[in-house]
Design a protein around this nucleic acid. Sequence first.
DNA 1: TTGCGTGCAAAGGTTTTGCATGGCA
DNA 2: TGCCATGCAAAACCTTTGCACGCAA
Lengths: 139, 139
Amino acid sequence: MAGSGYATASRRRILDFLKKNANRAVTAADIDSHLKENDSEVNITTIYRYLDKLAGEGTVMKYVAEKGGKAAYQYVEHGHRCEEHLHLKCVGCGRIIHLECAFMDEISSHIREDHGFELQCKNSVLYGTCKKCQKSISQ
Amino acid sequence: MAGSGYATASRRRILDFLKKNANRAVTAADIDSHLKENDSEVNITTIYRYLDKLAGEGTVMKYVAEKGGKAAYQYVEHGHRCEEHLHLKCVGCGRIIHLECAFMDEISSHIREDHGFELQCKNSVLYGTCKKCQKSISQ
DNA sequence: TTGCGTGCAAAGGTTTTGCATGGCA
DNA sequence: TGCCATGCAAAACCTTTGCACGCAA
């Protein structure tokens, strides 16, 4: 399924980590340190190459809007049509919320009709703070 | 006005270019090549330092969501409260549209009430294609 | 004169590329 | 066997920092 190429141990470990963290976006460095902690290091080059492959296949979403210029990747659940809705990303915990609601259509209609702008959901990410992180900040 | 520090020739040239391109976001490299073309080169370090200063003052907006990890900066017209509304950025020409309309409030209310997410407009940029670029593509 | 601005060089960090080796199918 | 995946090293890329000099006020 995920991965048109060969199934290797390295790829399995990377994909496992992505799936376990399907509710948030992780960086190549996150994957690298996770694997190192588990004594199953995979070369960082390999991680980047595989992530690039997965992003090309649509298996992961790639977000390029990180502070330090760090790219973040998130596993995409089967059936999610991430090019058709916007995403909210929490600056606290990195969690991604898929804006799959009727209101989403209103947003893109308004922007198209009133601003003459054709929205491209891919790469369009709204930043902010999720409920959990709002609480932990105010505590 | 723009610039609490010394008024130098370098800074004047950088600010001039930013003002002339107030309708779009430019990168440090854009400024660099523009100045080189006009035989008035300013060291890239100086450009970065001045842009950083201007961004701190609020004279320019800094966008960190560029494809190659390149940061883009845009001159902010006096009176624009860019932290209170979202921005649309055209992937074709780099033009920025300020979403200063009543609908903007609806978006943030919906996201807050239905998704428990507090929107942070700074750094939240929606990508897409503006009217002009849609036409030039279809031609 | 004082402190800010500048340029150069070098470092920093993330990501990409070349090349030879190793491994899956 | 044939192609793909991997690791290492090095490069590319954007951006920041240290230090000495120069210039605005």
